[in-house]
């Protein structure tokens, strides 16, 4: 049960630290929203180049959980869809592959907003 957790901890930690350094050393304008967008886009391109899979092989959840892993899902989705469906796959692959994460998050958002009130 515990195999690979050291790698996950270190790689996951480092990916987060890079963002923290980025926030601290750039002007105030970099907000969490910018960071999330930056990670997804970067993850997509890195994965598109085929460089993200080795990281996942090494670090498991340490590479899939950060939002760059979300980008990886998008990229792999589109690549597979292009293989199967050709041109049409360019437009269906990304979102289809990422649909589970997005759908669950949106669903949880609505459910939580109906159950809980923000505490401040």
């Amino acid at each position: 049960m515990l195999e690979g957790i050291a790698a996950a901890f270190i790689v996951g930690g480092i990916i987060c630290v890079l963002a923290q350094i980025f926030i601290e050393l750039t002007p105030y304008k970099i907000t969490p929203g910018h960071i999330l967008v930056f990670y997804v886009v970067t993850g997509t391109f890195i994965s598109g180049l085929g460089w993200y899979q080795p990281l996942i092989d090494f670090a498991g959840a340490g590479a899939t959980l950060p939002l760059s892993g979300f980008g990886h899902i998008l990229a792999q989705g589109v690549i597979e869809a292009v293989d199967e469906e050709g041109l049409k796959g360019i437009f269906t692959g990304g979102l289809s592959a990422a649909s589970m994460g997005i759908t669950v998050a949106l669903m949880m958002g609505v459910v939580m907003s109906l159950i809980f009130k923000p505490k401040g």
Binding site: T44, F45, G71, G89, G93, A98
Partner: peptide, 29 residues
């Protein structure tokens, strides 16, 4: 309220993630 604002931060992430995937798709194609 919920419907529009839920995407305040998720929206940009999904949007630019999708655009990036299209770019990757085109290049790969």
């Amino acid at each position: 309220g919920v419907g529009a604002k839920i995407f305040t931060i998720a929206g940009p992430v999904i949007l630019y993630g999708t655009i990036a995937s299209i770019v990757v798709g085109i290049i790969y194609y």
